[in-house]
Amino acid sequence: MPDIRFERVTKAYGGSGPDTPAAVHDVTLAIPEGDLVVLLGPSGCGKTTMLRMVNRLIEPTSGQIYIGEREIHEIPATDLRRHIGYVIQQTGLFPHYTVEQNVAVVPKLLGWPREKTQERVQELLELVDLPPDQFRGRYPRQLSGGQQQRVGIARAMAADPTVMLMDEPFGAIDAITRADLQNELKRIQAQVHKTIVFVTHDVEEALKLADRIAVMRTGQVVQYDTPLVLLSRPADEFVSSLLGARDILRRMSLIPVASIMEAPGENPSHVTVAPDANLRDVLSALVAAGAQEAAVRDGAGQAVGRVTLARLLADAAHPEQLATAGS
C-alpha cells in the first residue's frame, strides 16, 4: 500500500474570485501508508486544493506528487483516478443510477465482469451497513443524507483503491448522523487500512479520526503531527487557538488511561474504567461516583491498574510529558 508524498508543491492562480480555489505554496508533506491524515484549516487555506491535486483534478504549478514510487503525472489522469477513491461533501451520487449502479461505476469503467462487480457491490453495501437486498435497487433521492454518504463511501471503495481522498465527506450531515458515520469510518479503516487524505474544518472530527493532522493556513502547512502532540505542543498561537489547545478536557480525551495507570492496589475501587478509556472518561466516572480513585478492569473484570484523581489532575495540567508516551 503506497504512501503519498508532496514535494515542494505549489499551486498559484492568476486571478482570484469566489470560485478560484485557494493557492498552495511550496508544500512538502509525507503521508504514511495506511494512515488517515487530516488536512485541517479555515476556508481558503488550500486544504481542498491539496486534496484535488492528488487525483489531478487540479494540476500543480510546480513540484511533484508521488504515490508510492510513481510521480502521478506519469499516469494518465483517468487511469490514476480509477485507482483512487474519491468522496465529496455533496456525495455526487448519480441521481439517475440506483445504489447498485452507483457503486458499480468504477468497476464498470475498469471493465470488470458482471458477476465480480455484483459480488463486490454486495460486499461493500454490507460493509457500510446498508442491507443489500433492501438498498441495492433504490435511487439516491430515496435515501437519507447519511445513507447517501454511506453509498458514497462504498462507491469510492468499489475497485479496492489503496488511496482514498475524502473532501469534507460529513460536512453536510446532521451532528448525530455525522458522529455515527465517523465511527463507521474508524471501524472500516481499522479493517481495511487505506491511505486516506481527509479534508475538514471541523476540529473535533479531525481529532477523532486522524492518525496525523496537517494544520494549514494560507497555502502552507503550519504543523504536521499526531493529534496529541498538536494539542500539547502547538507550534504557534494559530494552531493553539484553532485546535482549542487550552481546552484541558479536549486534551484529556486524547490521553489513554494506560499512560498514567499505576499498579492495582490491595482494595480495587468499585469505580471501573476500561483499559482503552481515556482520561476524560476516567474523570467523568470519578465525578459521577464522587470517588477519588478508579480501578482499570479488563473484559473479564480483573483489576489491571488504578488511577487516582490527584494523579489525573496533575498529569492533565502538564500533558507535554505524556505526549510521546500517549501516542
Binding site: 483534478l57 487511469d79 480509477r82 465529496i88 461533501q89 451520487l93
Partner: peptide, 27 residues
C-alpha cells in the same frame, strides 16, 4: 446538472465523453 455529480464522475476517472453521455445528457 449538479456540478458535484460531474465532479464525482471526473474524480472517479470518467472521460469527458463518458461524463457527457452517461451523466450530463441523461440528467
Amino acid at each position: 446538472v449538479d456540478s458535484a455529480v460531474i465532479d464525482a464522475g471526473r474524480g472517479m476517472g470518467m472521460t469527458d465523453r463518458q461524463i457527457l453521455f452517461r451523466i450530463e445528457y441523461p440528467l
